[in-house]
Design a protein around this nucleic acid. Structure first.
Length: 423
RNA sequence: GGCGCCGUGGCCGAGAGGUUAGGCAGAGGCCUGCAAAGCCUCGUACAGCGGUUCGAGUCCGCUCGGCGCCUCCA
């Protein structure tokens, strides 16, 4: 299998089965309820984990939560801990409702302080970082490979707000002295404070996966500075860190109207409540993980119809797939995890077992569950059969309307009828 | 100003030098008491302009457009 790697800008081959493959995927900074875009990395990398396991890899999927950060302090002055805890719970709930299971580990920054402080100490010790008035900054100039991931040249990076404490405007904070109004802080050799934005990931990734691991993932917006800085922090003190960098594309919202309402309308919670988890997953499946995707009502309507199309296959007779069917499906996924191409392959399938297995990788085996109509609806359908036999079609149509009012569609078949739940 | 992702038919979306992607929507047909489902048929599209080539969505250059990042966003 090969995947697109940001570092080299090309497709790189994964090690042979069974790996092992350590996969660290940046999770949310918890200061609000996740929106549908935040769900993309969770979905993409959960699926990737499933597929890698399906093909025989030993995978450890680590997905962190950054629960201490400037944004959280700003969003809830004096009560950041409370907000972080609540938003973390939301994230667990909302991503949990996607039905893709949990990552193997979901470390919290606030519970990784010894590792964070230890890593900073090491950076200071080797001259890659310097403490100033309770802050500690990373010395960018000392790390020669800085900018390799993002293609940023240090001298071209936009001028920063002047910060008298920094030796160089490009330096970034590893540790920040606690400020008035901040309700959380931890002890450190530099005094009470809390970690800067990037260091927590370097520390948590190493704690969970070791100094070297296979895949680091996250949104494309994290390439710079977040991931660039993670590499600098870890490699400056000799950790090889991640071999492959996978960045999922951004989710875009069509029309300006949606832009304005960026908020509850497009919260993952709301999307799940409005469209259901299956359509939401099909929506993500229909776009290549690496490219941008547009979120809109039209697209979700299409995804709903597509999900229903699969359900329809399971209502029919299973027919054996042609030889090589699974191989074609696997080939699509093995080539940069091309889910739209894989989706096209399985659309041709009428083989229930094979289709269920393929959909299962994406958490969509539920599409194979056929709903059974309640007794009273079955009774109505039976009554309609009698009316039809008597050629009383007015009555038959009336009963059908009643069945539809109850949320079911009746289909006449060669012998008898079939009831299909309306969605 | 710099760095990066992307631009395919009504819509979504694969493909990366030469033979049908696929889905959704739509039209016609078969079937049906009427339907639904299913099946059959129907769309020559690759932002624009140059160039390379026997041949270009596919390679090169430029332009236009969307999106992301530039040290508090997945």
């Amino acid at each position: 299998m090969r995947v697109h790697d940001t570092l080299t800008g090309s497709l790189v081959e994964l090690p042979p089965v069974p790996g092992p493959i350590g996969m660290y995927v940046c999770g949310p900074t918890v200061y609000h309820r996740a929106h549908i875009g935040n769900a993309r990395p969770f979905v993409v990398f959960s699926w990737l984990r499933n597929w890698l396991r399906e093909t025989g890899y030993e995978v450890t999927f680590v997905h962190n939560v950054t629960d201490v950060n400037d944004r959280i302090y700003e969003a809830a002055p004096g009560r950041s801990a409370e907000l972080a805890e609540r938003a973390t719970r939301w994230y667990f709930e909302d991503t949990g409702d996607l039905g893709l299971g949990m990552p193997d580990e979901m470390p919290l920054a606030t519970q990784s302080m010894p590792e964070i402080v230890g890593l900073i100490e090491e950076l200071v010790e080797f001259g890659h970082a310097y403490p100033v008035e309770g802050d500690v900054y990373f010395r960018v100039a000392r790390f020669a490979a800085y900018g390799r991931l993002s293609g940023q040249r240090p001298d071209q990076v936009e001028e920063q707000e002047p910060n008298a404490l920094k030796e160089d405007p490009r330096d970034f904070a590893l540790w920040k002295a606690t400020k008035p109004g901040e309700d959380t802080s931890w002890d450190s050799p530099w005094g009470r404070g809390r970690p800067g934005w990037h260091i927590e990931c370097s520390a948590m990734a190493e704690k969970a996966l070791g100094a070297e691991f296979e895949i680091h993932g996250g949104g494309l917006d994290l390439v710079f500075p977040h991931h660039e800085n993670e590499i600098a922090q870890s490699q400056a003190v000799g950790r090889p860190f991640a071999r492959i960098w996978m960045h999922n594309g951004m989710l875009e919202l069509g029309g300006d109207e949606m832009h304005k309402s960026l908020g509850n309308d497009v919260s993952l919670r709301n999307v799940l409540d409005t469209w259901g988890r299956e359509a939401t997953l099909v929506f993500f499946l229909a776009g290549h993980w690496h490219g941008p995707i547009d979120f809109s009502d039209d697209v979700m309507t299409g995804a709903t119809a597509r999900a229903e199309g699969f359900r329809e296959v399971f209502r029919g007779q299973s027919e054996p797939a042609s030889s090589g069917a699974w191989e074609r499906f696997a080939a699509a996924l093995d080539d940069d995890f091309n889910t739209p191409a894989a989706l096209a392959v399985i659309h041709e399938w009428r083989d229930h077992d094979l289709l269920r297995r393929a959909l299962g990788i994406f958490g969509l085996d539920s599409l194979s569950y056929i709903d059974e109509a309640p007794e009273e609806v079955v009774a109505l359908a039976a009554r309609r059969q009698v009316a039809r036999a008597d050629r009383d079609f007015d009555e038959a149509d009336r009963v059908r309307a009643a069945i539809e009012a109850a949320g079911w569609e009746v289909r006449d078949e060669a012998e008898g009828f079939r009831l299909v739940r309306l969605r």
